[in-house]
């Protein structure tokens, strides 16, 4: 009787104790700062490092704990980060997606868990998932860059286009903006269009290979500055750096210096600092109850050339 009674008591008490332990683990300290996750597509590119660090810094200034997650341009890795941050009870995500389509499910999962997402620089193909998307107006930037390109080329010549990641909408918005101008000039011939995944080393390899079959090009249009630097390196190796014009997009420090030194013709300045800070401010407002936000907020991009470089500083701060 005694043993049975003891056994019943143990059976009754054990689940209660386990439940209390579990509840104790997830009990939130009312005074602890809320946490914001900063998920970045890749930290292998200085522009995205500035984006991530600026977002984290602004969120910290607003009183949040922050952690930066590097998706390494891999949607599977990104999904893993979202699983972890949902389990860890983050309050919001400042998100730079790896893939316009592939990242939608991650945003939706966070939304279902009650965690709002604020996209930075790159968009996802969903109006319902993220609270808002703060994106560069890449299309308009490349329309302006395209017009500058046409005038620098005197409306004729051969050129190569290096595309970014094919799954990223920015890649196509930039390319489309550029071609919406350049394709109206029949004496401008595109001899090759290849993806170099926004990567400096890959751009160098791709252009080296293109130069073997097309040694007489006049210009290279690159979907970002990292690829512009890679293309420039390939041209230096081929002894063509002085005769081939290179155009980039981003406004990174190395390309801004290269423009100052007359090595690269132009870039389009998009400010990672401004985008990141805007995203953090909007996340803060949202967490404090503000709900009236535009679904998409494009930010103007400005063309930086060898003539107006003195007006700008790297990563978007103006002189």
């Amino acid at each position: 009787m005694g043993r049975r009674f003891f056994s019943d008591v143990v059976k009754f008490i054990t689940p209660i104790i386990l439940a209390m332990i579990l509840l104790g683990c997830v009990r939130k300290d009312g005074n602890a700062p809320k946490k914001i996750a900063v998920v970045i597509s890749t930290l292998n590119n200085p522009w995205f490092v500035v984006l991530g660090e600026s977002a984290a810094q602004k969120a910290r200034d607003l009183g949040y704990e922050t952690t930066i997650f590097d998706s390494q341009n891999n949607t599977a890795k990104e999904a893993e980060h979202f699983e972890n941050l949902i389990a860890a009870g983050y309050s919001a995500v400042l998100f730079n997606p790896t893939d316009a389509e592939g990242s939608v499910s991650n945003v939706n999962r966070a939304k279902q868990a009650g965690i709002p997402t604020f996209c930075m620089d790159r968009e996802v193909n969903s109006l319902e998932g993220p609270v808002t998307q703060i994106i560069s107006d890449s299309f308009s930037g490349c329309v302006d860059l395209g017009q500058y390109f046409v005038r620098q080329m005197n409306k004729k010549g051969k050129y190569v286009e290096l595309l970014g990641l094919v799954g990223d909408n920015n890649t196509w918005n930039r390319s489309k903006g550029f071609h919406s101008v350049v394709d109206h000039f029949p004496d401008l011939k595109m001899v090759a269009q290849q993806s170099a995944d926004f990567d400096r080393n890959k751009a160098m390899e791709v252009l080296e290979s293109v130069l073997q079959s097309n040694p007489d090009i006049d210009a290279v249009f690159c979907g970002n500055d990292a690829m512009a630097m890679g293309a420039y390196q390939a041209l230096v190796s081929a002894g063509k750096a002085d005769s081939v014009m290179v155009f980039g997009f981003d406004g990174t420090e190395d390309v801004m210096n290269a423009i100052k030194n007359k090595k690269i013709m132009a870039t389009a300045m998009q400010s990672p600092k401004f985008m990141a800070q805007t995203a953090a401010e909007l996340a803060d407002k949202y967490l404090k109850g503000e709900r009236n936000m535009d679904r998409k907020m494009p930010i103007t991009v400005e063309v930086v050339t060898q003539d107006n470089i003195s007006e700008f500083d790297a990563y978007g701060s103006e002189n």
Binding site: E123, N125, S126, L127, F139, N169, W172, K176, K296, P298
Partner: peptide, 8 residues
């Protein structure tokens, strides 16, 4: 722009 899922 808010009516378009894809900015393209």
């Amino acid at each position: 722009i808010g009516d378009f899922q894809n900015t393209m």
